[in-house]
Structure formats: C-alpha cells, structure tokens
Design a protein around this nucleic acid. Structure first.
Lengths: 134, 134
DNA sequence: TGCATTTCAGACAGCACGTCTGCATCATAG
DNA sequence: CTATGATGCAGACGTGCTGTCTGAAATGCA
C-alpha cells in the first residue's frame, strides 16, 4: 500500500506563512527572506515549492507581472480546517464533534476564550432559529 | 533540511484502531483480522508495525504470555490530542484557541452538540470559580 | 527429537520531498 | 540588434521514511 502524499509540506508551509505575513511577493523576495542572500539553487528551490503549491491550489501566480507575483490562494483558517478534517477522517470517521469536545475539555481556556465561545454559540442558536422559521 | 517522520503512520494507525476496538490481541489475531488468512510475510509486517508502535510508546507488549499479547498504550482521545497539538504547532504557533474557534464556527453542530458544549463550558466556569476561591 | 508457530534482526523497493542543474525566456542597457 | 543579467521552467538526484518481505533463532508442544 503506497503512502499518501501530504497536502501541504513543511517547506511549502514555510512559504505559505511568508505569503500570509508579508503579502504577494516575487520568488526572489521570498527566497531572500528565507535564506538571506540566496544563491541560484536556493532560488530554484523556492520556485519549485511555489510551483507545487500552485498545483495544489494553495497559491495564485500573476503571470502578467515580471517577475511573476505569487500570493496565497487559501487563508490560514482554511488550511486549519483542512488539517482538522484530515485528523477527523483518520481518527473519528470524519466527524469533527470529537475534536471539539476534546479541545473544549482539555485546552487551557482563558476567561476571554470562554466568553467568545459562548458568544459564538449564542449566534449559532440565533441563526438556527431563523433557518427554522423560513 | 530532512523531513520529520510521522508520529503514527497510516498502517500503524490501522493496527491501533484494531487494538482499540477489539482489545489486547496476539500478532496472529491482528494479522488475520487485517488480511484474512494471512501468510508469513503479512504476519511479519504486522509484527514490525507493532514493534515500531511499541518503540513510540503507543503499544504495550506483554512478554509473559506466548505468543506475546499486545495492547494499546494510548487511547483514541490521547492521539487526537497529539494530532491537534501538532497542527496547532504548525499553524497557530502552538495555540489551540484558533482550532477551537474554527471548529465551533465552521462545523455543522447538531442541537445536542451545542447543548453539550454549553454544558461543558458551564462546568469550566464553575471549576474556575472554585479554583479562584481557594 | 521433530515440528509448527512465533520472535527478531535486517534487507528491500517504492516513493515523497527538498535540493540542485541546465537551458529557455524575458527585460533592459548600450 | 546584441549583450547581459535575472527569471522561468523541466527534469534529475539523494536522502530517508514506510510498508513489505526474507531468513534464522527461539519457543512451545506432541
């Protein structure tokens, strides 16, 4: 049984983080921020990672500029969701509920965290009522 | 930069699931449940996976019986926690809070789910008050 | 003792992933 | 237009993980 490739690799993630933090960039900018005074092969490495990220739909490439400008196609939050769904698939038959209850039970929540959670829950109840009405 | 090995591999996880579902077992039982009428090499494969799981502290081996009896050393919930912490480390600088808020916001929660969540939250508040008192 | 089962150590192939090389392409200066 | 330097692109490579497999030693039993 062959192994399944990861959706976003560690090195790829490092690039994504930079795009999230610093916005659209060229390959050179990204490479220099990562390596500092990058040489040719390091430059090519970053380019390859971007190419793979683009193939995975995680990065957009603007070919109208020169050099090309890369920007993230998914947000941090979206990637979090994918990762969570992945662990849910592996460990909970796809259900996210066990993850939630685990987190709420085990995580050290600050008072603000609990407040915001209660708020979100209340909103959910509201929306639910609306949906039920119509 | 070398890649980091996974903590629990897919094939290893399949073995763990069986131990969780069916309790302590011998290698043969596990192999037959996985392959059905397993041959020698499949038997050895399961053995190797158990050996690696033991090295990772996920499986206990009782060498006083013959054949050895294997049982899971960690629960499903504990592994969930490890996975969650891992994604938190990668995407949220180690904080679990963003994971919680993402789940509560995005997941399709049933009415019971929300009820139980509210209950857990209330309990947390209670405990917090107690801790604050003493 | 002979036989079947299990354990153990190690080898192996396939592949993911990060890296690197060579060449084509483009923009700009002179 | 040509020279020059930066960039894009396609593909190869090494390392090491992962699942699988082989062979021999160890164990229990008739």
């Amino acid at each position: 049984m062959p192994r399944a490739p990861q959706d976003v690799t560690d090195a790829e993630l490092a690039i994504l983080q930079r795009l999230w933090d610093e916005g659209p960039s060229s390959v050179r900018i990204l490479a220099e921020r990562s390596y500092g005074k990058c040489n040719a092969s390091q430059h090519a490495t970053v380019q390859k990672l971007l190419e793979r990220l683009e193939a995975k739909g995680c990065v957009r490439r603007d070919r109208s500029t020169w050099p090309h400008t890369f920007s993230s196609a998914i947000g941090r939050d979206e990637l979090i969701g994918r990762q969570l769904q992945q662990t849910a698939d592996k460990l909970c038959a796809g259900s996210l509920q066990p993850l939630i209850s685990h987190l709420v039970r085990s995580a050290k929540l600050s008072e603000e965290d609990r407040q915001s959670l209660r708020g979100v829950l209340a909103n959910l109840v509201e929306e639910n009522k609306k949906n039920a009405k119509k």
